[in-house]
Computed example of a mutant assay.
Amino acid sequence: MRAVVQRVSEASVAVNGEYIAKINNGLLVLVGIKADDTEKDMDYIMHKMLGLRIFEDHEGKMNLSVKDIQGEVLVVPNFTVYGNAIKGMRPSFIASGSVKEAEFKYHAFINKLSGQEVPFATGKFQADMKVSLVNDGPVTILLDSGKVF
């Protein structure tokens, strides 16, 4: 499982010109799911994204998590985070899970998030979404449950 975590002052998702999700101060998380991802992968990403100390404390140091600041999380499914452009110019998405399996795992991830006592919103699986954000910093962190980076 992979996640692109961005610290935002606001973020939203629109589908067909209609806003379906919006958050203020917190995290925008683009989530990609591999075919062989397990609950252990979900737990790793969940723990890391909610625990990342990327918000400033009273001394201006990145020392607080989204939970510490009582921020919000916007989770957006995004199979392209597994895009591989090593060969040629057209990315391959072979590493992404099948649509059916990825959707099931995405919803399982969201269910886990609902038990974490952090306000959250979600994008819509397999929709043409328009994601808007104000990246605060900017701060962008890449997470991979396979610990590739």
Rank of each mutant, 00 (worst) to 15 (best):
V5D: 14
V5F: 07
V5W: 11
V8Q: 10
V8L: 05
S9H: 06
E10H: 12
A11N: 13
A11R: 04
S12D: 13
S12N: 14
V13P: 12
A14G: 02
G17M: 13
E18G: 00
Y19P: 07
I20S: 01
I20V: 15
I20Q: 04
K22A: 14
K22Q: 15
N25P: 00
G26R: 03
L28D: 11
V29H: 09
G32M: 06
I33M: 11
K34R: 15
D37C: 06
T38V: 12
E39M: 12
D43F: 00
Y44Q: 05
M46K: 14
K48A: 10
M49E: 05
M49L: 15
L52I: 01
I54L: 04
I54K: 03
I54S: 03
H58A: 13
E59F: 11
G60K: 06
K61T: 10
K61N: 14
M62L: 14
N63A: 08
S65V: 04
V66N: 04
K67N: 10
I69C: 07
I69M: 11
Q70C: 07
G71H: 04
E72H: 03
E72P: 01
V73Q: 07
L74M: 13
V75A: 15
V76D: 12
P77M: 09
N78L: 03
V81K: 08
G83P: 02
A85L: 09
G88E: 10
F93E: 06
I94K: 15
I94E: 15
S96H: 05
S96N: 05
V99R: 15
K100C: 05
K100W: 07
A102D: 06
K105D: 09
K105M: 11
N111L: 02
K112W: 01
S114F: 00
S114V: 01
Q116C: 09
E117M: 08
V118M: 01
V118W: 01
P119N: 14
A121Y: 00
A121L: 00
T122P: 05
Q126C: 06
Q126T: 11
A127H: 11
V131Y: 03
L133P: 13
L133K: 09
V134M: 09
N135F: 02
D136G: 01
D136M: 03
G137H: 10
G137V: 08
V139W: 03
V139G: 04
T140L: 01
I141H: 04
D144W: 02
K147D: 13
F149G: 04
